[in-house]
Design a protein around this nucleic acid. Sequence first.
DNA 1: CTCCAAAGTGCCACTGAGTGGCATAAGCCT
DNA 2: AGGCTTATGCCACTCAGTGGCACTTTGGAG
Lengths: 213, 213
Amino acid sequence: MTADLLPLRERKKLKTRAALVDTALALFTERGFDQVTLDELCAEVEVSKRTFFRNFASKEEVASAPLEALWTALLDDVEHAPLGGRPVLEVLQEAMLAAVRRMSAEGPEWVARVRLSQELSQRTPSIAAHGLQFCDRTSAAFETTLRRRLGLGDRDHRPRLALDLLVAAFHAALRGWTTTSPDPTLDDLLTELRTVFAATPAAATFTGDEPSH
Amino acid sequence: MTADLLPLRERKKLKTRAALVDTALALFTERGFDQVTLDELCAEVEVSKRTFFRNFASKEEVASAPLEALWTALLDDVEHAPLGGRPVLEVLQEAMLAAVRRMSAEGPEWVARVRLSQELSQRTPSIAAHGLQFCDRTSAAFETTLRRRLGLGDRDHRPRLALDLLVAAFHAALRGWTTTSPDPTLDDLLTELRTVFAATPAAATFTGDEPSH
DNA sequence: CTCCAAAGTGCCACTGAGTGGCATAAGCCT
DNA sequence: AGGCTTATGCCACTCAGTGGCACTTTGGAG
């Protein structure tokens, strides 16, 4: 499907990378992130620790890989999508939905991997930290793109706030996705996303009526 | 001012804690986070590494301490503040302004510490990651409080989105604060916060007019 | 087909973060 | 003062992550 055209070397590299991700997700899920040493993981995949660190910058990164791939794909999309005359946040939200659909089109395993990645992230602070920092860096990149393409000034905080709202909505949707359904599907995720997106405009304005007392 | 009433033991502990924070901020700022080992830091403060880890959970935490203190203080405030009939986000924003004022009232060193902490966080990915994860956990706690006090359901995403918007605005303000003025003051920070808060409602709705092409 | 350059890999030794255990000292309470 | 609690120091240990070098594999050129 996606290019057998790559040189053999590249394919091999991607294969070990994928093996590392899948094995890591399995081991971490089964026994917990810090109960699994990298030596074990590498032994399982039959790869040296040195090779692991040529593919991933840290132990946390291998667990966040599936979600990071999504954000990177989304960033590419937004770089080229038309932004004209519509609310920026709406455009971003639709790009997000499209990116999720596109990722999952590449194979059903993707959904399973994202689910495991998300569950690990919720249960393991250091993975969560890594993921959040990745989102933050990616948001900064998005922000630059938006500023440039929309001709906004450096002191205009709106694009960054919109991006953070997108990130917040995405994370809320992920949390909802993995906690409600026992075996969440792609459609469940898309539904969850649309629900959260629908609630987003109210976030800045809603008034809490304190219950009687 | 704030209780010499504490038992001597506690005061001593707080003192070494403060010494660790200040020395760490100084060393990290001067030579870079990963160029300073904990052994060095501990030698400087004349404390064993074991003691360091009884005060802080990680090397990153000591660098984030001032900002974390602010969030914790804010959380306490929100626990007891009246939330009645006004937009929740507005209430949170005012609580944030009040918390900043209250923290800085305890001494002018606080502003300097926060500035160093923020600058380190921007330049050091692992500190940023730790700080973001802390905010995330704190937001989750806030969320619980808000849900309880406002009687909202588990499936209502608005409180969490509002909180994330507050966090995003705060971070944007911090970035602006440390990049614009060469030697940022407390008032600069408050001004910056108010500016970002003012821009927040537009984040969800603004439309980017693509520049002519 | 062969040989060369380049890129990926394995092995090994090393630094430094973080932890557990136990003995010691310092503050607390009566 | 004397026992009790609690923080601290010291020591040895695990494991993430890095740098160096030798070795294998691949792609490409003659």
